[in-house]
Nucleic acid binder design. Structure first.
Lengths: 253, 253
DNA sequence: CGGTTGCTTGAATATATTCAAAGTTAGTGG
DNA sequence: CCACTAACTTTGAATATATTCAAGCAACCG
């Protein structure tokens, strides 16, 4: 099922003034003028099911979104079907920026769970740059943040062992999820299959399975309900020799 | 030798009005006001030797540069010394943006050849965002372009075979070099060692050597003078199943 | 000329893939 | 509620790919 087949809900179920994400300590406070502009910049909301393709490689009609709720992932395909997952998408993340700025999308985005997204008007991006230089700066910051995450991922896929790589990835995702309150009282549960993990790590499913098993034996993670429950982020970080996210507060559009 | 040990040359050997890169068809034309601002934004030039570290992971005093001439690369290290090269840096490319925006550098940049760089004033970046929204947009565009290149690289390291990966990488670098006129009348010559290649591809030097040998047997590349001469970009592209750069014109700050 | 750096090669070992099959789980429809 | 299906996980064995180790060679530099 693609995003196109789902009717866009124009109703403001979540007005910007009552954004559930903005109050989180992970995000920088916005002043009234900024909030008002963001609110006017927002065109509507999009709700999609698990498995929906939000954006697809080769398409030109890219929209700009911010994730309000749910999980997704960004990926590219080779012609014969091999898939590389580039990064995961969590609440507070912006998607479609590359396509909005540069024209044709060169990656796709798919929902891992039901998702709710704020949709922004591509054409008004120029207004934002003209009238709100602070927000323009924020958007560049967001692009630089994505670049930073990709740098880490590339380091991991290129140079870490399979076990380190898996540990790093799960710690990375769980840390990000934790920052946006996706762990209730308990541990973070990531709604992915081992195939997703394999396609992120650059490994086969079989080898990924054997690698995860080692993490399970060490009681670092648990596999259940078609997802991965992260039991010990610090243990994973130690195993991967990864020192954790270092972001401070970030902007939220 | 680090950049710090080389005296910064404040003289304007290359005034913006006589920029050798800007007239290239790869770059979008700037109007007078934009050119004037960029010229005032430029603080000086930096010339470094091959092997110099321009920016280093963990440092905070990041500068913002645009490469005028020469080759470099961006990389990250693991604690035990394993290195991943993230991308190469060519004339027209901006470096240090991540550090300028986000504070601490999380990667390093090293010169592969003597380099000449334009140095920009970090503090004036806000002025740029306030007074030149078009240029602000360009900077975001540049960040999105880097992200796109990283997406491709990650796809390659994660999912292409060693041979495809090497072919892709060399075609990619040679295409970029070609766009900025780094091939005289002949072929592009990339000033890298097989160790650099290995650290980019996520392979050992030994295996990299055996892989490159296959490319040489097919007369796609040649190794000489401590560098790689690309003989047949299209052959490499076909081998890697890569359709080439798709950028159009880009901004040059 | 001696030392260093980078390239090359073969052999032994380790890591990861492919193939094949079986077990599990969740969902669907009768 | 159960049978059936599809998607996902798990396992072992055979094979392929890549690393490590070790050694030698070539080019360059002081």
């Amino acid at each position: 099922m693609t995003a196109q087949s789902i009717p866009t809900d124009m109703a403001r179920q979540v007005p910007c003034e009552k954004c559930p994400l903005r109050p989180l300590p992970a995000f920088r406070p916005f002043d009234k003028a900024e909030l008002a502009f963001v609110s006017s910049f927002k065109r509507g909301e999009l709700a999609v099911d698990k498995g929906a393709t939000l954006l697809s490689e080769g398409s030109n009609s890219a929209h700009l979104f911010t994730v309000l709720a749910g999980w997704g992932f960004r990926y590219k395909l080779l012609e014969d079907g091999r898939r590389q997952i580039l990064n995961y998408v969590l609440p507070g993340d912006m998607i479609g920026l590359q396509g909005t700025l540069m024209g044709e999308m060169q990656h796709s985005v798919e929902a891992l769970s039901p998702m709710l997204l704020c949709m922004f008007e591509r054409d008004r991006l120029m207004d934002l740059y003209r009238d709100y230089p602070g927000l323009a700066y924020d958007i560049t910051w967001i692009a630089a943040r994505e670049e930073r995450m990709l740098d880490e991922n590339l380091l991991s896929v290129g140079r870490r062992s399979a076990l380190e790589r898996a540990a790093y990835l799960l710690a990375f995702i769980a840390s990000r999820a934790h920052k946006v309150g996706m762990d209730g009282k308990g541990d973070v549960e990531i709604p992915i299959t081992q195939q997703h993990l394999a396609d992120t790590l650059g490994l086969s499913v079989v080898h990924t399975n054997k690698t995860i098993r080692k993490l399970m034996d060490r009681k670092l993670v648990q596999w259940r309900d078609g997802g991965c429950k992260v039991l010990d982020i610090e243990g994973l970080m130690a195993l991967a020799n990864w020192s954790g996210l270092d972001e401070g507060v970030r902007p939220l559009l």
